[in-house]
Computed example of a mutant assay.
Amino acid sequence: MPEKNEFTQANLQADGAALAAQIIDKVLRPHQPLRTVVVLEALVMLYRFHAQTLPPHAIGLCSMSLAELAGELLKASTATQVPDCNAIH
Rank of each mutant, 00 (worst) to 15 (best):
V44H: 02
I23D: 11
T78Q: 05
A76H: 03
V82T: 08
F49T: 05
P33R: 05
H89Q: 04
E41A: 15
E3D: 08
Y47N: 09
T78H: 05
I59M: 03
A51G: 08
S65G: 10
A42H: 10
K4M: 00
A76R: 06
G60A: 03
V27P: 02
V27L: 04
D25T: 04
P2F: 01
Q81W: 05
I59G: 01
Q52M: 05
L19E: 07
M1Y: 05
E41R: 12
H57F: 12
I24Y: 05
A58P: 02
L12R: 00
N5M: 03
L69M: 09
Y47E: 12
E3V: 01
G16S: 13
A51M: 13
I59T: 02
L34N: 09
D15Y: 12
Q13Y: 11
S77D: 14
Q81I: 08
L66T: 09
L61S: 02
A18K: 14
P55L: 03
L61D: 00
V37L: 14
D25V: 01
L73M: 03
A87G: 08
L54R: 10
C62S: 07
L61M: 02
C62P: 01
S63W: 08
A51W: 03
L73T: 02
A76K: 09
A58F: 06
E68S: 08
F7I: 00
A79P: 06
I24E: 13
S65M: 11
F7M: 02
G60T: 07
P55I: 03
A87W: 02
L66S: 10
M1P: 07
L69T: 13
Q81L: 04
V27Q: 14
V82S: 00
I88D: 13
G71H: 01
M1E: 07
L40W: 03
V39E: 15
L46V: 08
L34Q: 11
T78C: 04
Q9T: 06
E68N: 11
M45R: 08
F7A: 00
A20N: 10
